[in-house]
Design a protein around this nucleic acid. Sequence first.
DNA 1: CTTGAGATTCCCCTTACTGGAAGGTTTATG
DNA 2: CATAAACCTTCCAGTAAGGGGAATCTCAAG
Lengths: 132, 132
Amino acid sequence: MNIGAVSEKSGLPAKTIRHYEDIGLLKPDRAGNGYRDYSMVDVHRLRFLQRSRSLGFSVEECRQLLSLYGDSDRESADVKAIANAKLSDIDRKIAELIGLRDMLRHLVKNCHGDSRPDCPIIEGLAGEARVQ
Amino acid sequence: MNIGAVSEKSGLPAKTIRHYEDIGLLKPDRAGNGYRDYSMVDVHRLRFLQRSRSLGFSVEECRQLLSLYGDSDRESADVKAIANAKLSDIDRKIAELIGLRDMLRHLVKNCHGDSRPDCPIIEGLAGEARVQ
DNA sequence: CTTGAGATTCCCCTTACTGGAAGGTTTATG
DNA sequence: CATAAACCTTCCAGTAAGGGGAATCTCAAG
């Protein structure tokens, strides 16, 4: 499969896909003409990257997540440790997104258009997340 | 309030706080000695930035979200349009995080340590999100 | 008064892409 | 068959969003 098709299927620009290859996140075959030749596994990895990057995980975190499978030299204890750590991150992110969503919903409901100066939503903006 | 205290309260490094000032996300006062002097509103904005950046929103998106209040020249229709667009984004992100979490949970439960070659989790990795 | 913690600016480095040039390949069309 | 459009290649440079660290300044404590 050529890079254009993979781009469409993964939702990532071709530039980004080549970049991910440069930094070792995947290694597509090459066709006789020099074009990259992607498999469905590559598409899965790229889709996964698209998702997790857009959710605020760094490329290195994504690399760890990807290593949870596929790398046949994985060790069960490592896998579980990494996965559990990421599960905490994810739970926190979900909670924060829900907080953000509620805040915006409140804003949409209560801020009724006349540009009144003091909007009580400002309090909610910072969330009640414990710092540190 | 000095930048150190604000850093602690917002969870952002001082470097990042100064950077946000450079790109116009806040304008703290200056004390007589040249030190930046932050208000509680600044702290709120910074906390908000910390949260939304870590959730995968770009700085420009954060700028839009911040403009939903504080800018007294806001127009109700604009506010609602932006807020509603962001609400969709947030809902999608939440759904994706839940998908990611379920996948990891499944992996933790089912991948029982002996490095067996084929893990069915790979299917789940890409999610069933419709591309495009 | 001096010592250490915290502030300032400035400049360069890093991460994670993104745009564009210059050129090779494949596909559709006259 | 020619040739133009669409796709692919590499390479180089730029952007976005910070981070490291030097050189200097200021404040609080002993």
